[in-house]
Design a protein around this nucleic acid. Structure first.
Lengths: 194, 194, 194, 194
DNA sequence: GATGAATGAGGCTTCATTCAT
DNA sequence: GATGAATGAAGCCTCATTCAT
């Protein structure tokens, strides 16, 4: 199985920036240190590689965020999830960037999409529960998740594209702001006045 | 010049989801209602089209955000920019999605990259100024920009990928949270206690 | 349409001997005097070429054998069909050899198989009618067709493979023998004695 | 040497229909119940297998037809050969089909071609002798052999391709017709009249 | 001797670009 | 200026063969 792992590791390096479409299979093989044909002994084809890679890391991310999560009050739970998410981003920025830049791409198969949606759904449902408990403001839960999660995606992309350093206390710097996206009431009447 | 505009409009529809690499030029020509050869009378090639499209919309976005911006206090200025940004997302979600999914792609030329960075830089400098004025918390300005801006990108992607409705008061729902990402102090010591 | 015809003509020359599987598409393009990509503008692919070729010649053969066939007594009708068949073999030996060496090959599509079976069926039914009229001996009609027709296939293959000359009076030399395959009673009791 | 025989038996099953070109060596190995590499311990390669198979069965066929053939008058001799030929077709239809569909294919080596031609030549010379003895009509002997032999090939192909049953008395049903192909005079002047 | 994972040359096909009309 | 048929370089993939086990 070492060859399959080598191939997936090489694929992560090469596909990370969204260059799946423009990376030839021989280039992937060379980076993995195997022959071109070896790719096809371990995966059904190029799409098989990108789907295996997506599933591998999306599963790892979901496990990281949700495994053995202790029940607690909403804000503490959110901060714990956020801390885990930031630790994943810091430890695996390439994998995180890959997952985001390949989300909902047309070459992902049904299983990849299912796994991808599963995490989204779990997060959105958590928010909805907290809304019913009065701990999160009203409004579309999926919009809040998208904004909070997207903020961290933006940070990861800035790291990859422009070399932004990821501080060790990333969670500390961003958790309060992220939680406020969910909990703080907005003041539409005031925002429209000048 | 109507043909060139038709081509760029067709390109926006086809490239939006990141399918630049897998869209054949003849398909672009057909969608634009012109002959294949006509593409090459108006653009140097396929990369020429995507670069022109990127520059067109990045320029439009920058103009929308910054033109005739009245000097005001930081929070009001931020809210005004945010309102303009949300109006752009709502009016041109395809263009916004295109800009994000093609950010820093390898086929973008130097001019496209320059224009892309220009807006990032302008935003980051604005934050830095506000930091020096004590209106924004300390920390890496580019990280804050990345998180706030990325949050809206996440919303736009959820709209495109999962059909999330973009509410008319999107700016109202998100501006306060976004501003807090920049202004609120975080409390690292508390986050580590439970 | 000239290019499509050029391609089919080249394909007949190259595929004739059963070498469909081992003829590269670029070789076919070169023989046809076109670029490799041009094949794919006129046919869905390599299998599309061999199917179009099969249907073209099988249709031509069927038309040659059956069009405007005057009703007559069985032997005269058989001799007329045989004469037409031999004229086809003499005029188009390559096409006849191609049809036989590709009969029932796995890459033939449903339409090709249908056309191929159609001619077989028409011939077998004609024999069956003549059997009921008492003009052809009893026994499996399809076996008789296979033997008579196969005899001419053997001649065509000997022409192709070993340079056997096809005499202008091929029909005269072979028609009586072919008719006797259908009409003469055999004498099993005598054949088994020594 | 059992492994070599297993490989040849598997090759006969797989190559019979003309699918030599499209059958991968690993598939052949699997059907034979041996490892892929084992093929190369017993044969020089894929072409070595098909040539060995061709020579094995062509030799077997020639031996069947000619061994211990008692001198007799031409018709009796022909009927004996024909009876042996039909028994081969009935007992080994796959081998007979294989021999015919691979006749004169380009991947056959010199030895295979020599053995293949040898049987053709022996038959043609027998006819020529009978012609000089006045027992067979005048005309190209190789054409007569081709037609008679080809008739049986047609029957065997109809068996394989369309499921035609091979009757136990195949020789009885076909021998007289086949002999008449050689012996009966044709009547060209009559065939042209109506 | 037997194996089958690994290889890479070569096959089929796509598509960005050209150019005669 | 506009067109789209033609092109061929380059991509994905197969499979005959090898060789370390």
């Amino acid at each position: 199985m070492s060859k399959a792992t080598d191939i997936l590791d090489a694929a992560l390096e090469l596909f990370e920036g969204g260059s799946y479409g423009s990376t030839p299979v021989p280039a992937l093989a060379q980076r993995a240190g195997v022959g071109t044909g070896t790719i096809y002994r371990h995966f059904p084809g190029k799409e098989g590689v990108v789907n295996a890679l997506y599933q591998r890391w999306k599963t790892a991310l979901a496990a990281r965020l949700l495994d053995e999560l202790q029940p607690s009050d909403p804000e503490a739970t959110f901060r714990e999830i956020w801390r885990r998410l930031c630790s994943f981003v810091i430890e695996q920025p390439a994998a995180f960037a890959f997952l985001e830049s390949h989300h909902h791409q047309q070459y992902l198969d049904a299983e990849s999409r299912r796994i991808g949606d599963e995490l989204d759904t779990a997060m959105t449902e958590l928010i909805a529960i907290w809304q019913r408990a009065g701990k999160v403001r009203s409004g579309p839960a999926s919009l809040m998740v998208a904004q909070a999660y997207g903020g961290l995606v933006g940070v990861a992309r800035a790291h990859r594209d422009r070399g932004l350093a990821l501080p060790a206390d990333l969670a500390d710097q961003t958790a309060t702001g992220a939680w406020n996206l969910l909990s703080l009431q907005h003041h539409p009447e005031k925002e429209n006045s000048t």
